[in-house]
Design a protein around this nucleic acid. Structure first.
Lengths: 191, 191
DNA sequence: CACAATTAAGTTGTGCACAACTAAATGGCT
DNA sequence: AGCCATTTAGTTGTGCACAACTTAATTGTG
């Protein structure tokens, strides 16, 4: 077996939405904002759920993009790189990485593949020989035309309207900010 | 260079939260629920943002878990597997995959590593020789004790209270459901 | 100016996700 | 019984994320 069926095939265990209501509603406890009011056992189970949800959403998103992007010949991370280049034009690898929160360990091979595909050119900067500037080729710039339909198709697949998307985005950004901050000053030891 | 600094180092391009307000507010257009009211160019930019947000949140989450789980000797996906086993006990690989939405291509090597670490045992089922049952070893069962603190630390890192976490989870699950459905019956061609 | 620290890109190695495939066991169905 | 479709794990190959490292260019400081 290889691919867990995505559909509502009979035997499938669906942890995601169903159990959401079936489980004890932790937010109904005396003080919903106080995590220490919840027993550790329950908390472990809750963790299982939120982990899974985020993971599942991320992967579901990925796989929808994968389908849509296949006809452009791009992977999802490659699409993200192209989006930045379409919007900003030439950029050194460093800047690209800042936009995407990716380091050279990820970008170097990815850019090599984009270059092999003829979408991008890389050349050492003259002023600073350490820096490599990434440029769109004509083919790369032209691909933007085909990409214009992608967002609509994705948005349609989510079933969310624009307001919901915006709202979800805001929450996710807030989450990311908090997590980054926590990662910086060391993850809290207990509390 | 290798790791894009997570901190507020001066030159860092922060696409995530700042631009959220700086950009034209698409949801203020005449009809927020009608995507076709938005020009394709804007839509492409919006897509860039929501993609990035989801991706960034997922990776930020991952890296916080990575830090916390390192002292347990687990990766994040391995932790997810252990959570399922702690909750359900012995399971065939197939069921494990259903809980986690992972196929054998991902699980087989992962379980092999967990087995090498002495946390699980795998044995062919007697009734059905196709099936492999995954069992916790004593060490694997014991590890649960240490894992009990993980959820609190993560929750603390998010800065979200339980209600917000629950709410975010509900949205993500809804998103996943919609995306799965779309993936099933083919992603909409244009719409 | 010289030399240490910093910065940019790339390389190597590990682990995960997934598509495509193989191998073996099982369950019908005739 | 014999055969074929299905089911279950596993394998192989590609691409991404990231840690740890290397190399080379640049900057800062004495």
């Amino acid at each position: 077996m290889t691919k867990t069926p995505l559909s509502a095939s009979e035997g499938v265990v669906r942890d995601l939405p169903d159990k959401a209501e079936a489980l004890p509603d932790l937010s109904d406890s005396s003080d919903p904002s106080d995590p220490s009011a919840v027993p550790a056992e329950e908390f472990l189970r809750l963790d299982r759920q939120i982990c899974f949800s985020l993971n599942a959403a991320s992967r579901a998103f990925n796989s929808v993009y994968r389908v849509v992007l296949k006809e452009l010949g791009l992977t999802y991370p490659q699409y993200l790189v192209m989006l930045v280049l379409w919007e900003h034009g030439e950029l050194p690898v460093k800047r690209l990485g800042e936009h995407l929160r990716l380091d050279s360990g990820t970008l170097s091979p990815l850019l090599k593949r984009l270059e092999a595909a003829g979408l991008v050119r890389r050349e050492r900067s003259a002023e600073d020989e350490r820096s490599v500037r990434v440029n769109l080729t004509e083919a790369g710039a032209d691909l933007r035309e085909q990409a214009l339909v992608v967002p609509r198709r994705i948005a349609a697949a989510t079933g969310f309207d624009l307001r919901e998307i915006r709202d979800l985005r805001a929450r996710l950004d807030r989450l990311t900010l908090a997590l980054d901050a926590a990662a910086l000053e060391g993850v809290p030891v207990c509390e």
